[in-house]
Design a binder for these strands. Structure first.
Length: 109
DNA sequence: GTTGTGACGGGTC
DNA sequence: CGACCCGCCACAA
């Protein structure tokens, strides 16, 4: 049992992102919950690093409000728009900068 | 060891 | 519905 929080915290985040089914999205809070923690903020930072950009569909992760949040380290800009476009392509309905909460996959309630 | 900040969350105004 | 504030954990300087 690690005395610190979790050296593999980010790794867990990536693992969960991979388990996100196509056409659906999840929230940072959900991931944090699934990890049995409350570091929703740390989750975002881990994804921001996203060394598995080609293995982890981080674009399927949105905020609890349904906002797409950010992408590629940018909270706004065409990068985010691209993320939205990708989600739409997967079948996720996106309005403005928000996705339908129905498409949000709640890992833990 | 302390400070600051963030791809956040929820509550309040 | 938008703006603001506080609280949360992890990480970098």
């Amino acid at each position: 049992m690690p005395k610190t929080t979790s050296p593999n915290f980010a790794e867990k985040v990536y693992a969960l992102c991979q388990k996100i089914p196509r056409g659906k999205v999840t929230t940072y809070g959900a991931i944090a919950r699934a990890l049995h923690t409350k570091a929703y903020r740390a989750v975002g930072q881990a994804l921001k690093c996203n060394p598995y950009a080609h293995g982890v569909p981080c674009h399927r992760v949105v905020r609890s409000d349904g906002s797409v949040g950010g992408f590629k380290g940018k909270t706004e800009g065409k990068e985010v728009e691209e993320k939205i476009k990708m989600l739409k392509k997967e079948g996720v309905r996106v309005e403005k900068y928000k996705v339908d909460l129905k498409n949000v996959m709640r890992i833990k309630v």
